[in-house]
Design a protein around this nucleic acid. Structure first.
Lengths: 241, 241
DNA sequence: CCCCACTGCGTACGGTGTACGTAACTACGA
DNA sequence: TCGTAGTTACGTACACCGTACGCAGTGGGG
């Protein structure tokens, strides 16, 4: 009974070192940094234990001394990039401005790491940086006088909106990555099919939409307005009822 | 040059049959139905080409006559369950009620098919049933006097909120499925870690939250209120400016 | 000092998606 | 009517994947 097999425990509760044997050659941080770099460069599907080990210059199975399961590696990766949020010393006192800034930071992070959306739907928990994030958000929302449960919902909605927006924007690009044809071709093919469908006349409203709106959309502005609207919905314009 | 290799084309544009050879033994619909059944029963990870073929009683590679790539199978699955939306003959004229009904239907669908959230972040496009859905929503929103682009955003937000809500609710259950320990153990382990972290005093706001809110939450009500708030944010209470 | 927990890692097993070759079959052009 | 070309079915094979297990070597705690 060496305890080699996986046991029910959170990766964050497992100590990185247990002081007996020889010094580990690497650290969890090193490994996760490599994994993030690989995912950024070649997509999340390129993140395999063998690839990370090779990139690190060690044997594949050595990784399992640091990360019990691959799923935990994902969780570590999410936590690592969650650490890219940069918070001031103190909340500004304007919860709306603070939350807007957080949303924009989140969007920037998801642009830097296009694999985040895919992984977050699986690996999602109370990682250290997730707690830090939550704590900061709650601090920002102190001036807002609504029940705490509602604050949690607000935070979740802001986070989720960021994720959904970026995921939508990058879905096609991500799908085109690693495919034998270019993104332009992909879009052209999909667009042609869509046009053909609409031309059948079965979708009058959709047809009208496509006909009337060839205007190039400003992604940034749409995002900003969406967040603003979301915040509005949680804080009615205090008309005094 | 047999055209055997994958070409850039949308699965929806590929005809199910090209009339020359022997009659196919199965149909795309059969295959997708089996895949959905397997995913419902044993999780999305159980959906492999070999498993589906075995369940269908045919050779593995025969499937590739119907579905060019596994990714396309996912897309077909999403489209199939998107067909579970049931729409009346005509929109009611009350766009708010209609959209609320759609949201609740969507939630029910995602409960029936817990794998949807995971797959939708990847397989997402203009499938026939997605077009049908979009067309219906746009019809419901006819009485609402906002730009069409904004309507699209509203639909996306409602859809996304449904997905995020259900995904959050089911993330832990889904993770526990197929793990060697029970969901109760998982939650206990995670809870213990969380409590330990909060006890360090580094997260005062979080601590306050955990201390004050042991109230059992009514998931249905929270969902309904979230959707209502979201709709509100797109249609300000017409104070006349 | 010596023991043993720990690290590093090679091997191996059971799984995955899917490229390719082959045989059987059928609808169409001559 | 009869090739024949294109399609279906499917077995084999390849390159991956996660990871269980066993072993050698190392260095800190009793």
């Amino acid at each position: 009974m060496t305890g080699r097999t996986a046991e029910p425990e959170v990766i964050w509760a497992r100590p990185e070192r247990a002081g007996r044997g020889p010094k580990p050659a690497y650290s969890r941080t090193d490994i996760v940094a490599v994994a993030v770099r690989v995912a950024d460069a070649d997509g999340i599907d390129a993140v395999s234990m063998r690839r990370i080990a090779a990139e690190l210059g060690c044997g594949t199975m050595s990784l399992y001394n640091y990360v019990p399961r691959k799923e935990d590696l994902y969780e570590l990766m999410v936590d690592a990039v969650s650490g890219e949020y940069e918070f001031p010393e103190e909340p500004s006192g304007d919860w709306r401005a603070d939350m807007t800034a957080i949303a924009h930071q989140g969007r920037a992070i998801m642009y830097r790491h296009p694999w985040l959306a895919r992984v977050m739907t699986t690996a999602y928990g109370f990682s250290p940086n997730a707690l830090r994030f939550l704590e900061w958000c709650l601090g920002c929302l102190t001036p807002l006088d609504i029940p705490t449960g509602l604050k949690m919902q607000l935070i979740a909605m802001v986070n989720g909106t960021v994720m959904l927006t970026v995921a939508n924007e990058q879905a096609m690009a991500e799908r085109a990555r690693g495919l034998p044809w270019s993104e332009e071709e992909e879009q052209a093919v999909r667009g042609a099919y869509l046009a053909g469908q609409v031309a059948t006349g079965r979708y009058p409203h959709l047809a009208q939409l496509l006909a009337e709106a060839p205007a190039p959309v400003d992604t940034d502005e749409i995002f900003a307005m969406g967040i603003a609207r979301l915040l509005d919905s949680f804080a009615p314009p205090v008309t005094g009822a």
